[in-house]
């Protein structure tokens, strides 16, 4: 099935945060008020009741002076989601069109997904003892609507549609930006981690937007999931089997030489 996704073009974003409010509204999430930290950014990062935020990133450029970069940040809906692999209760699923969604009834708040995620996006919601994240509004999309954030965006920075079509559009836009004062403009999400089901048009390199240039699943998580979990546990049944075998053989051999074990030993 065709992937359906968001394209977020930072060059059009005014950081009005309408998407943040629309997301809260649709998902019926309460306000989370964090103390002022000398930045217009509302929250340090996503949290249990805030699936998406607009980051305000200040960059000092030797030529252009201070640059203020905005970035809508939320779950990237990876094509190959690591969170889904580590979840011990299988509460994370991927829809055919690419949304990675959580069944909160099954979530046990173990945090595995948070630390497996290369972006550390799933966040803990204490009042329900679960971790939460953006759903790509799958319940809206499956009824033919666009996600709440994309629907509300007044400048057209956020669009929703077929990924292939949006990619064509993104390439055009990057070409335009490169020719008009943004030589480092790039697409983010096309190839990262084997493809993300969220596309970004950035006016500069990803590190200027607080995004990892080459995101990777931690080697610790790979070792844990690919080696320890599937194979290591077999040592336990092997030990139990050896003990059961010994239980039988030691008694059979003792019957042949009964004097050996009289009263425990010899």
């Amino acid at each position: 099935m065709l992937k359906m996704t968001n394209l977020y073009d930072v060059s059009k974003c005014t950081a009005c945060r309408g998407c943040q409010v629309a997301c809260k509204d649709w998902n019926q999430l309460p306000a989370v008020i964090e103390p002022f930290t000398g930045n217009y950014q509302t929250h340090e990062t996503t949290n249990g009741d805030t699936y998406t935020i607009v980051k305000f990133i200040e960059q000092i450029d030797d030529v252009k002076g201070i640059q203020w970069n905005f970035l809508k940040f939320q779950c990237m809906h990876c094509f190959d989601p690591e969170c889904m692999k580590v979840c011990p209760t299988d509460c994370i699923k991927q829809t055919e069109w690419g949304a990675v969604i959580k069944d909160y009834d099954k979530c046990i708040g173990c945090h595995y997904c948070t630390y497996a995620c290369p972006f550390e996006i799933p966040q803990y919601r204490k009042r329900q003892d679960i971790t939460t994240k953006c759903t790509l509004c799958y319940e809206r999309v499956e009824e033919g609507l666009t996600p709440a954030c994309a629907r509300t965006c007044p400048t057209g920075a956020l669009q929703f549609g077929e990924r292939e079509e949006l990619l064509i559009q993104a390439r055009e836009r990057v070409k335009f930006l490169k020719a008009n004062g943004f030589p480092n403009a790039t697409i983010y999400g096309e190839k990262e981690l084997g493809g993300l089901n969220k596309l970004y048009v950035l006016t500069d390199t990803p590190d200027k937007f607080d995004l990892p240039v080459d995101p990777k699943v931690s080697g610790n998580i790979g070792f844990w999931q690919n080696w320890v979990q599937p194979y290591f546990g077999w040592l336990i049944p092997v030990t139990l089997g050896a003990s059961a075998l010994s239980f039988v053989t030691s008694r059979l051999l003792a019957n042949k030489a009964p004097a050996h074990t009289e009263g425990g030993h010899e």
């Binding site: 497996a116 610790n220 320890v228 979990q229 290591f232 546990g233 336990i236 030990t239 003990s243």
Partner: peptide, 26 residues
């Protein structure tokens, strides 16, 4: 990073501990 190390450490220590405990119990 420490949390990610703790995940596989907990599993390996559990398996080796359980192997020793089951041998010891028998």
């Amino acid at each position: 990073g420490l949390v990610r190390v703790a995940y596989w450490t907990h599993d390996i220590a559990m398996v080796l501990g359980t192997v020793m405990v089951s041998m010891h119990a028998y």
